[in-house]
Structure formats: structure tokens, C-alpha cells
């Protein structure tokens, strides 16, 4: 006996994500989902922003990693509220983990909730976490072909941060090819070039967060 179902497999996650979205909106918090490969500098971008923004907007962070509390310790050292979520080897965050992590924050005291996803350019893209905006981070050492290889992320990102631009003279990274493929995947997508080491572009990055924090 065949029973017709016709149900989206992501339904449970999508519904939970909608719950997170409503929870954040009710408290006036803007959720950001940071997605990148491991080692592209997501945590450093957050640290740099925390040190430069001086508390406005008020930022809290959910750190997703397969293991350890290393990233949460780095964020806590900058004075921001943070919760570490370990996925026990899992390759992405899901909405239920974020929903649970939100219990640990006083949402009324927060403007921006940064969710740093597990470093991975594939799996996190399929799981809505209830964020308002998706931030894709690529570093120059990863190569200019990342957008073409991982199109789904770059079609859905609200902003693309090109990180580690101080290394451009030393790596084989073609900015024109990078920008051109982004433009083909998502015409008009905003790109911010940053080096947390030299400080170049940090003000533009902080400014983007300020604008995001105003909802």
C-alpha cells in the first residue's frame, strides 16, 4: 500500500527556523548567519568588529563548531555574550540548536545575534537558522574559484566578505574572476574587502554591521 505524503524534507528545520526568526524579531534582534570554509577568518572578523564597534550595536555570538570552546573563549575575551554550540562532529548548525542556544541570552540587551556556523561551504547553506541575513566569508588563500564551485551559498548571501586581502601579493587570487563570478551568481551583491591584520576595510565591515544592527 503506497501512501502519498508530498512533504518537504526540511519542513521540521524550516518551521523551527521560523520560530527563531519570530523570537528574534519580537526582541528587536537581527540574526546573522556567518558561513565560510574553515579557517577563512570568521571568528577574527567578529573579534575585530567587537573591538572596533565599542558596544554599538550590541552584539552577541553563537559559536558553532564540531568540538572545543576555543572560539567562544576568544569572543568572551572581547566582552561579548557568547554561547558555544558543539555539533559533536556534525557539519552544520540546525535551527533547533540555535533555538536552544538563544535561551542563554538576554535578548532585550542585544541588537545583533551573530551565528557563526560550522566551517563548511556546502551543508550549512541548506539549513535555515532563522537569520535575517546571510554573511559569506571567503579568504584570499582559498582561491578565486570558490563562488563558482559553491554557487548556492553565493546566490543566497546578503553580503560577501573577502578576507585576508593583505595576502593578495603572495597568493594566486584573481580579484576580477572572483568579482565576475559573484556578479554572475547574484547581480549586484555587496562585496566588502577586509584585512583584519592591516586594518584595511575594517571600517567598511564595521559600517555594514552598524547598518545591519539597525534592522
Amino acid at each position: 500500500m503506497e501512501i502519498n505524503v508530498v512533504e518537504k524534507v526540511m519542513k521540521v528545520n524550516d518551521e523551527l527556523a521560523q520560530g527563531v526568526r519570530e523570537r528574534l524579531a519580537k526582541a528587536g534582534v537581527v540574526g546573522l548567519n556567518f558561513i565560510s570554509a574553515p579557517g577563512s577568518g570568521k571568528t577574527t572578523l567578529i573579534e575585530t568588529a567587537l573591538r572596533n564597534l565599542g558596544g554599538a550595536p550590541r552584539i552577541a555570538v553563537i559559536e558553532g563548531d564540531p568540538d572545543t570552546t576555543l572560539d567562544a573563549e576568544r569572543i568572551a575575551a572581547c566582552g561579548a555574550p557568547v554561547t558555544q554550540v558543539n555539533t559533536a562532529g556534525g557539519c552544520h548548525l540546525e535551527a533547533n540548536l540555535v533555538n536552544r542556544a538563544l535561551d542563554g541570552f538576554d535578548l532585550e540587551q542585544i541588537d545583533l545575534m551573530i551565528i557563526e556556523n560550522v566551517g563548511n561551504l556546502v551543508c550549512p547553506v541548506s539549513f535555515d537558522l532563522g537569520e535575517e541575513k546571510r554573511v559569506a566569508v571567503v579568504s584570499t588563500t582559498e582561491g578565486h574559484d570558490k563562488p563558482a564551485k559553491y554557487p548556492k551559498l553565493f546566490r543566497t548571501a546578503h553580503v560577501v566578505v573577502l578576507n585576508k586581502i593583505d595576502l593578495l601579493p603572495y597568493v594566486d587570487f584573481n580579484r576580477d574572476i572572483f568579482r565576475d563570478s559573484l556578479e554572475k551568481l547574484q547581480p549586484g551583491v555587496e562585496v566588502i574587502e577586509v584585512s583584519c591584520t592591516s586594518g584595511e576595510g575594517v571600517e567598511a565591515w564595521c559600517d555594514w554591521l552598524r547598518r545591519a544592527g539597525k534592522g
Partner: peptide, 11 residues
Amino acid sequence: DIVLASVELED
């Protein structure tokens, strides 16, 4: 999308 279309059960 990924859609669960149907489930077949032993009759």
C-alpha cells in the same frame, strides 16, 4: 527542494 513523495507499507 527535497520532497518525501510517498511511503510504501507492507500490505
